[in-house]
């Protein structure tokens, strides 16, 4: 089955690159340069996944509106924001709208394709009911239960709503804790995000968000330690 991916991006060159790369990987790609065009097409048929730029020509928040529309139509539809707007607030807003990921440009095409593949896989897994969730992908670390394939995580049996990037960081910390009992350096965490350029500061922001999300469920959550000057460590007493 050929999966359809919609790209809404006002810059023709970038749009073409994404489309070309995705087509090369066997996806069917539909390109739209503004909100009206995209929504008109989505009225007819929904894609399997959508890649959205936020600012579409003069339509400053056009991408958000498209995301909102898509989430209304299908809440399980993976949406990736691919934007030059890297502000925290934009990111939070985008994720709150139900987007699966928020990537800042420039983006590695290679990484983007890996990301899309795993999202489509997760989507399929989720839609194929709980039973299908491979038990082999389930891991347990004390109160934490994660499914690395579905990128789903539970703390004390409550789902922690992590973004894929946050999940990757958590995964990296868990792996290190499991294997060496040590922390993960920031540099390693940067690699784990599998993004083009990530600063230390971005990692700390992500960690802060992860901590906040856990604390929402459990105010006494203390498992992510800061290894000052080095990185972070998953350590539950």
């Amino acid at each position: 089955m050929i999966q359809t991916i919609a790209i809404v991006e006002d810059d023709r060159d970038q749009r073409h690159y994404y489309a070309e790369a995705l087509r090369a990987h066997g996806y069917e790609v539909s390109e739209y340069e503004d909100r009206e065009q995209a929504i008109a097409a989505f009225e007819q048929a929904l894609p399997e996944l959508a890649i959205l730029d936020i600012a579409l020509k003069t339509d400053v928040g056009g991408g958000y509106e498209v995301c909102r529309y898509l989430q209304q139509r299908d809440a399980t539809l993976p949406v990736i924001f691919l934007t030059s707007r890297g502000d925290e607030l934009d990111k939070i807003y985008g994720l709150q709208l139900g987007a699966w990921d928020y990537q800042t440009k420039p983006v590695s095409l290679e990484f983007l394709i890996v990301r899309i593949e795993s999202f489509l896989q997760i989507k399929q897994l989720n839609s194929n009911a709980v039973a299908v969730k491979g038990e082999d992908a389930n891991q347990r670390f004390g109160d934490l239960k994660i499914n690395s394939r579905a990128m789903v995580c539970h703390w004390k049996d409550q789902e922690v709503n992590l973004t894929p990037t946050e999940f990757s960081l958590l995964q990296a910390m868990l792996d290190a804790a499991h294997e060496t009992g040590q922390g993960v350096s920031v540099d390693d965490l940067i690699k784990a995000t599998r993004q083009g350029i990530v600063e230390e500061n971005t990692i700390s922001t992500h960690i802060l968000h992860i901590r906040k999300k856990f604390k929402k469920i459990d105010t006494d959550f203390q498992c992510i330690k800061t290894r000052y000057g080095l990185g972070y460590q998953w350590m539950c007493s």
Partner: peptide, 21 residues
């Protein structure tokens, strides 16, 4: 800076993807 980021990152992205290509 925000404008610059927006304005610069798009062409940078294009260059980046061109280079990958």
């Amino acid at each position: 800076p925000r404008m610059l980021r927006h304005e610069i990152l798009n062409p940078v992205n294009t260059i980046s993807m061109s280079l990958q290509k």
